[in-house]
Every structure is written in C-alpha cells, then in structure tokens.
C-alpha cells in the first residue's frame, strides 16, 4: 500500500509530541501531513510559528480551496473545520463546533478517510476528550491505516483510550516508535 497522506489529531499534551515528530522528520519527507489539533480559544495565532521552530518541513495554515502538495504540513486553522475535496484541495468551514471543538478531529478524519481511502494513515495523540475516535474508525473502515499513541505515554489519555475502545487499531506506539514508523515509510 502506498501511503501518501498522514492525518494527526490531538489536544491536551499533543503539542510536544507533534513538535518532536516534526523535528525528527527529514526535510525530504515526501508525504503530506495534516494536523488537526485543539487549541485554547484565546491562543489564535503564533501556533504555526511555535511548531515551525524545530520542524524541518514547512508548516502552513491552509486557505480555503488551497491545493494539497506533498512534503508539506497543513495545520487546521483556529476556529475553522478543515476538509478535503476530490481534486486534491482543501476546504474550510465555520460550521458549528462538534463536541465543543472547531476544528473537529472527527470531521477532518471523516473527510480525509472518504477522500484519501487506503492512501491515508490516521494518528491519534494525547488529548482530553473523545474527539477523533469515530474519525479514526472511519479511516480504518475506508481502508486506511490507524495508529494511536500509547496511552501509557500520554499526558492525558482520554482521547487515545477512546480511540482504542472504538476501533481495532493497527498500531499502538510510543512517540519514538511513531517517528520510526513514519521514517520507514520513506
């Protein structure tokens, strides 16, 4: 199977893990990574900058209808839901928050699962609610590969535990193992 797209969801406790993953991936990494992370509502800017400090890969907050390119990281903008469209571009919306979240991990995962099918890897990291569990199941149902951060390693394990309970996930990995896994995709 050729995995071209990786979508990562997380909330509380995921920022450090995402930073760690991005700092370990080489500049030449040619998959597309989507990040759907809950953030505090009043922290609306500076997130890309903070993530970029240690990343070797360019991190962008996409514009509505922006074309998806390989070797980029796209971060769901604060206060928007992020979707994927056939024709390889992204769409944003300001529809109602889902489970109090906008961006909603479930919505982005559903949309990615439908659009990218078995070319997709879904990863759930540390987080404080159940968002993402149904989305990860949908990725699995659409032929994608599912990975969850080992709850034992998570700062807050609600999100990963919910994901594991909802789906028979393919891998439960520590952050170091996630990095090795991604590096081997190359």
């Amino acid at each position: 199977m050729i995995y071209r797209y990786i979508i990562i969801g997380g909330s509380a406790g995921s920022f450090q893990i995402v930073t760690k993953i991005l700092s370990a991936l080489p500049k030449s990494f040619n998959k597309t990574i989507f990040l759907c992370l809950h953030r505090l509502k009043h922290v609306r800017s500076g997130f890309v900058e903070a993530l970029s400090i240690k990343s070797n890969i360019q991190i962008l907050e996409p514009y509505d209808k922006e074309h998806i390119k390989p070797g980029k990281v796209y971060l769901a903008p604060a206060n928007y839901h992020m979707y994927f469209e056939l024709g390889n571009y992204m769409a944003l919306s300001t529809e109602e928050p889902v489970n109090h979240s906008r961006p909603s991990i479930d919505l982005s995962f559903f949309s990615a699962a439908f659009t990218f099918k078995n070319n997709l890897i879904g990863i759930i990291l540390s987080g404080a609610n159940k968002d993402g569990a149904l989305g990860l199941k949908n990725i699995k149902d659409n032929g994608g590969l599912t990975v969850v951060q080992d709850p034992a390693e998570c700062q807050v394990k609600t999100m990963t535990t919910a994901a594991i309970q909802t789906t028979k996930v393919d891998y439960i990995l520590t952050s170091d193992q996630i990095i090795n896994f991604l590096l081997k995709l190359e």
Partner: peptide, 8 residues
C-alpha cells in the same frame, strides 16, 4: 451535529 461521512 454528529460527525458524518462525506456526501452522506
């Protein structure tokens, strides 16, 4: 609003 599959 529930999460749903695209083009439900």
């Amino acid at each position: 609003m529930e999460a749903e599959e695209t083009l439900a």
